[in-house]
Design a protein around this nucleic acid. Structure first.
Length: 295
DNA sequence: ATTAATGTTCAGAA
DNA sequence: TTTCTGAACATTAA
């Protein structure tokens, strides 16, 4: 479930690898089906070994390492992928490691002498992917390609322009990475509750003022979730780069709260419905189907 | 012991 | 063109 807040937390957690050099690509013995590595392990080794990491970036729900030849390594965690700078939750689901060396010698930052770190990619279900792309291929695929603007950077007007013409339910539209990048199933429900908009309303039915409210809710919820380092759900899968749980799950208003009272109105129970084969949670009182209901 | 549910992306169909 | 469905996978709960 890594969505924008979780992936941003991953990114921040591994920022310290900037300036490190990649010594090698580790392939832990994993009895499970191998994850997708593109173009191949051989190419990955050849292109990464010896390169310096210039930056750690994020594009939508992906963590990106920018190397000193401007090529990129992209970690796409999908459902259960983690990027770690510490010991992983278990060995069975370790998929890939980047052995790192500090620049200019063996000393760790701060003058301590630590073992050079390994940046691990761990993935329970193995749906995630790791790929290497040239600068050109990266720009084509992720910057000028199908992905919409980042959810934390998009303006209210742009949000409406990219979503507002559609007949789709607004909840489904928010999940469309080509419209806006970073929102996933959990945060879509949370955002709509804060915005007091019914998830099944056709996107094109939102009034101008509602796009402003939706945009504010989008920004507020995602920023707040980043502050709490993302949501670790009951299965405990999601962890930050130090294998620690996030805490935004303690602040969920609707997600996974079906049957519980709405934290806002206290007058209704949170309802669970299915849209586009995904669970949606909302409050039927606070998020009326017809617009114009006063606060 | 099956079966359903999970939540992301993409290919392919409607 | 736009929207929808199913598959990729491992694990847990029912």
């Amino acid at each position: 479930m890594p969505e924008l807040p979780e992936v941003e937390t991953m990114r921040r957690g591994i920022r310290g690898v900037v300036g490190c050099r990649v010594e090698g690509v580790l392939r832990p013995r994993c009895r499970l089906r191998p994850i997708a590595v593109e173009p191949s392990w051989v190419v990955l080794r050849r292109r990464l070994t010896g390169r310096e990491i210039l930056a750690v970036e994020r594009v939508g729900k992906r963590v990106v390492l920018r190397l000193d030849d401007q090529s990129r390594v992209v970690f796409e965690p999908r459902m259960t992928g983690l990027v770690l700078l510490t010991d992983p939750p278990d060995q069975e689901h370790l998929r890939l490691g980047l052995a790192l060396a500090y620049p200019g010698g063996a000393a760790a930052p701060g003058g301590r002498h630590e073992a050079p770190p390994v940046l691990w990619y761990w993935d329970r279900r193995g749906l995630g992917q790791v790929r290497w792309l040239s600068d050109k291929a990266f720009v084509e695929r992720y910057l000028s390609g199908h992905l919409g603007p980042d959810a934390l950077l998009v303006s209210a007007d742009e949000l409406r322009a990219r979503l507002g013409g559609s007949r789709r339910a607004i909840k489904v539209g928010l999940l469309d990475q080509a419209a806006v990048a970073g929102v996933g199933n959990l945060y879509a429900s949370e955002i709509l509750h804060v915005a007091r908009i019914h998830p099944a309303r056709p996107a094109r039915s939102l009034a101008a003022a509602e796009w402003q409210v939706l945009h504010a809710a989008l920004t507020d919820v995602l920023n707040e979730a980043v502050r709490y380092e993302g949501s670790t759900l009951s299965d405990g899968t999601y962890r930050n780069a130090l294998n620690q749980a996030g805490s935004y799950q303690n602040h969920h208003r609707v997600y996974d709260r079906a049957g519980q009272p709405c934290v806002d109105c206290q007058g209704a129970e949170i309802v669970r419905v299915v849209q586009a084969q995904r669970a949606t949670f909302f409050c039927p009182i606070c998020q009326p189907r017809r617009r114009g209901r006063p606060r």
